[in-house]
């Protein structure tokens, strides 16, 4: 990946730490219900599908596709380079989505349905999940 831009980082707490540090071993994890197998995002103390409390982080394939996207041109944070903000739907569950960035990708290739795999940008303790093309 090219040099990391300025980013506002998440404040880590007991609920979100597993998610934002998951990339330390190169894996993406979501909270999953031990009773009904629902993936739950954002993290919550109980499963919204079955009210079960046996939730724990579980590794997913890290694969998904562009559900929607926007190419940002406005210099909100001073950087002049356009960048891709994408809403990525994770393969494991319909509606399991992340707002994220696409990294190392030709902007002209970006479209709804583009196949992706996860990658991470480390900033201190935080490993931000991002996505890149899945065909290389």
């Amino acid at each position: 990946m090219s040099a990391a831009p300025f980013r506002v980082l998440p404040h880590l707490d007991d609920e979100n730490r597993f998610f934002w540090t998951s990339g330390a071993d190169g894996q993406l994890r979501f909270l999953r219900c031990g009773d009904c197998s629902e993936y739950v995002h954002p993290p919550a103390p109980e499963c919204p599908a079955c009210a079960g409390r046996r939730l724990s982080p579980e590794v997913v394939s890290g694969r998904g596709e562009v559900f929607s996207y926007t190419i940002n041109h406005q210099q909100w944070d001073g950087s002049p380079e356009p960048y891709v903000i994408a809403l990525v739907e994770i393969d494991e569950q319909i509606g399991l989505r992340l707002t994220t960035n696409l990294a190392d990708i030709d902007i002209d290739r970006v479209g709804v349905g583009l196949r992706l795999k996860v990658c991470f940008e480390q900033q201190g303790d935080v490993f931000l999940p991002m996505f890149t093309g899945d065909d290389r």
Partner: peptide, 18 residues
């Protein structure tokens, strides 16, 4: 810049500011 909590943590780190 101190670190973002709550629902904004899912968008701001990706420079989805607005």
């Amino acid at each position: 810049r101190q670190g973002v909590s709550g629902t904004m943590q899912w968008s701001l780190p990706y420079r989805a500011y607005s």
